[in-house]
Design a protein around this nucleic acid. Structure first.
Lengths: 229, 229
DNA sequence: AGCGCGGACGTACGGTGTACGTCTCACGTA
DNA sequence: TACGTGAGACGTACACCGTACGTCCGCGCT
C-alpha cells in the first residue's frame, strides 16, 4: 500500500503546504464534513500519522486552510484611483475568493488567522482609509464595518442557498403553511425573495456603505461635496 | 444507571424541546466542539438512543439549536417610532441574542433554518422597509444588507476575540515580527486596533447603513430631508 | 384480560483524532 | 569507508463519535 523504495517513484516530499492544498481540494470537492486526517492522508498516498510531522493537529490544519484562502486575496492597488474604487475592489476581492472556494468559507470564518498573510487585507483597508483622509480611529472602524459586511454577505448568501435548496427538495410545501397575516410581507414579497441575484444584492449593500463613507468627515474635506480628495 | 420504575422520580417526559435546551446549555457551557449525542444524553440522564425518538440525527438537532436561538429574538414593535429606530432595534435584537449565546452563533450561521420562527425577523425587516416607503425589490435588498451586516459584525467580533485571545497567550510575539513597511498601517494603528470596543464598532457600522438608507428614494419622499414620513 | 404500540434502551459497527513507539534512511564526522 | 544521529514516515492502539437495528416495558385501547 505504501512504498518503501526511494528510487521507485520519488513523490515530492511531504510538506505542510502540500497537506493544506490537499485539504482545500478535498473540501471543495466533497464538502467540509468529508475532511478527515485519514482522507487527507489517502489523498496524498501517505500514512495518517505522517501528517502529524507537519501539522500539530486537525484544528491547526483547518487554520492553515483558512490562512491559505485569505492569502489568495487579490489585493492589487491602483494608487491613482479614488479611494472608493479601492474600497470596492477590496471587498470584491473578498467576494471573489468566497466564490472560488465556497465550501471552505465556513472554515475561514470559524477559525482564527494569525499569520501575516491574514493581516494583509486589514493593512490594505487601513491604508485605503488613511489615504482617503479618515483619522485613525475612524479608519479602524471603517475597516471593521467593511469586513463585517464582506463576511456577512457571504454567510447570508450561503445560508440562503442552503435554505432554498432545502425548499426545492421539499417542494416548498412548508412555505404555503405560513400564517398569512403574521407573514404577510414575506408572502407578498415572495417573487422578490425568490429572485435571488447574489451579485446585485452584494453590490447594493456595498454601495450603501460606500455612500455612507462619502458622507463622513475627513481630513481636508469636512463633508460631502468636495470632490475626490 | 438508568431508572426503570416510573414512580421513583418521575422526571419530565423526554421531548425535542428539552433535548434542544440541553444542547444549547451544553454548547454555551463547554463550546460547540463538546456537543455530542452522548454528552446531551448524559445531560438529560437518558440513554443515547432515546434521543433519536425525537430528533432524526445530529444535524437536525443542530438545526433545532439554530432555530431556538433565532426564535429568541426580541422583536417588539413600536409602530409610532420612525422606521430608523425600528431598523436599529431589529439589528440590535440580533446582536443581543448573539451576545447572550455567543458559542451557539457559529451553529446558527452554518445551519439552515426553515421553520416559521426563523422567518419572523425577515418578516419584521420587510414590514419595516415597507412602512418606511421603500418599494418591494428595495425592501428585500435592504433586509438582506442589514442581515448581512448583523451576521458579519458578530462573526468578525468573535474572530477578533479568538485572535486576540491567541495573541494574549503567545505574548503577542508574532505581532512584533511584522514587516514594518508592508504592515505600516497595522502597526501605526496598533492602539486603535487594540482598543477593541465591540459596542462602538457595531453602532458605527449600523449608523453607516441607516444613514445610507435615509438617502435612498422612497414612496412619497424622493430623497433625504423630508421628515420621518 | 388481552392486545398493540410508542418510546426508552442496549448492543454493535464503522469511522474519527491522535498518543506512542518503531523503523528506515540520508547525512555529518572520523 | 564506517558509524552515530536525528528527522520523518509509519503501524498500532485507544477513547470517542454517530447511528442502524432489535428488544422490551408500560400505557391505553377493546
Amino acid at each position: 500500500m505504501v512504498r518503501h523504495v526511494t528510487s521507485d517513484t520519488p513523490r515530492p516530499a511531504l510538506t505542510r503546504d502540500r497537506i493544506v492544498d490537499a485539504a482545500v481540494a478535498l473540501i471543495e470537492r466533497e464538502g467540509a464534513d468529508a475532511l478527515s486526517m485519514r482522507r487527507v492522508a489517502a489523498e496524498l498516498d501517505v500514512a495518517v500519522m505522517s501528517l502529524y510531522n507537519h501539522v500539530p493537529n486537525k484544528t491547526a490544519l483547518l487554520e492553515g486552510v483558512a490562512e491559505h484562502i485569505v492569502a489568495g486575496l487579490d489585493l492589487q492597488d491602483d494608487p491613482a484611483a479614488p479611494w472608493q474604487d479601492g474600497a470596492r475592489a477590496l471587498v470584491r476581492a473578498f467576494r471573489k475568493v468566497a466564490h472560488d472556494n465556497p465550501r471552505c468559507m465556513t472554515i475561514v470564518f470559524t477559525h482564527k488567522i494569525d499569520s501575516a498573510a491574514g493581516l494583509r487585507p486589514m493593512e490594505r483597508a487601513l491604508a485605503l482609509a488613511d489615504a482617503a483622509g479618515f483619522d485613525g480611529g475612524t479608519a479602524v472602524r471603517i475597516m471593521r464595518a467593511l469586513l463585517a459586511y464582506a463576511i456577512g454577505a457571504q454567510m447570508r448568501e450561503f445560508g440562503m442557498e442552503k435554505m432554498l435548496g432545502h425548499l426545492a427538495e421539499t417542494g416548498a410545501k412548508s412555505w404555503n403553511h405560513l400564517d398569512p397575516v403574521a407573514f404577510r410581507h414575506v408572502i407578498a414579497y415572495g417573487p422578490e425573495l425568490a429572485a435571488h441575484d447574489p451579485e446585485t444584492d452584494f453590490e447594493f449593500g456595498l454601495d450603501l456603505l460606500i455612500a455612507a463613507l462619502e458622507a463622513l468627515p475627513r481630513r481636508g474635506a469636512e463633508g460631502p461635496g468636495s470632490g475626490t480628495g
